[in-house]
Design a protein around this nucleic acid. Sequence first.
DNA 1: CGGCGATCGTTAGTGTACTAACAAGCCGCC
DNA 2: GGCGGCTTGTTAGTACACTAACGATCGCCG
Lengths: 152, 152
Amino acid sequence: MSSPGPAPQTERDPASGAYLLEDQVGFVLRQVQQRHTTIFAAAFGEDMTPLQWAALAKLHDVGECSQNQLGRLVATDVATIKGVVERLVRRGLVETRPDSSDRRRLLLRLSAGGHTAYAAGVGTALAVTEATFGPLVPAERAQLLGLLDRLR
Amino acid sequence: MSSPGPAPQTERDPASGAYLLEDQVGFVLRQVQQRHTTIFAAAFGEDMTPLQWAALAKLHDVGECSQNQLGRLVATDVATIKGVVERLVRRGLVETRPDSSDRRRLLLRLSAGGHTAYAAGVGTALAVTEATFGPLVPAERAQLLGLLDRLR
DNA sequence: CGGCGATCGTTAGTGTACTAACAAGCCGCC
DNA sequence: GGCGGCTTGTTAGTACACTAACGATCGCCG
């Protein structure tokens, strides 16, 4: 695993009002996400990405919906969701069929294999969340989720 | 601006121990970053990305360093930093020269235009951080940064 | 009924973020 | 003094994450 890893800690100068890249939310956020992605990949292997998993999980929840609809559910634009769905279909986890009442729409739902993959993945997904939270105690985890939620 | 926007809030069922995508750190993290990127793009325009800005800022801090070194400073792998540097050089913000004492290395530093761009951008960057933090009061911001830092 | 705005999916293009493999150069250690 | 291991940068390939433009379809409203 040769991920970039954390940026070196810079000595803080609490007195100065200078611009410190290390203290900007965006910069820290990016690194936390990198770590999360690494943890996810280590747990699920190369054949499942966070977004693919999100699509799978949402599809499991809603049963059936159109491609763009799924995109909105997992907070992804239409161009990106197309690729994700394409890969899931190619791997036999998702099935598509035309919507008879709206010929623009492409309806999606989990295949049998998709349901199996979801069932097999839930535990792993929870473990990924656990590992990402790392050393934080439950109260801190809730606090973090609450704060992030307000920034969403 | 037709970003995906926040995923619809799902009704929480506090009693159930079910897997809720919306409650997983990774999922929330991704959306916060999306929002940050949108804010960044609105403030800086299309010609500057968060990573390009990070590279510029770091290069300003350290004065001169090699390409891989810069990658480590901004927490980016060698393949990605190459593209970033290439685009900054193409726009005349960064200059390169060979390292006479190590012929593998490519030394980088800000050009005059790069220094100007940095000086012009610091205020905007601070405004982006401010906007990203949104409604959080200072104590909450510090708390969030502290928690994120432990997850880095 | 007919037209017009909105939505659905597709495509092309740019940038980030990795992995894996490679050649070239550097350096320490036998 | 050379050899083997490390770092530096490059390339190719995959997957996200957008923008912008497009054709097809839908549905409302006059």
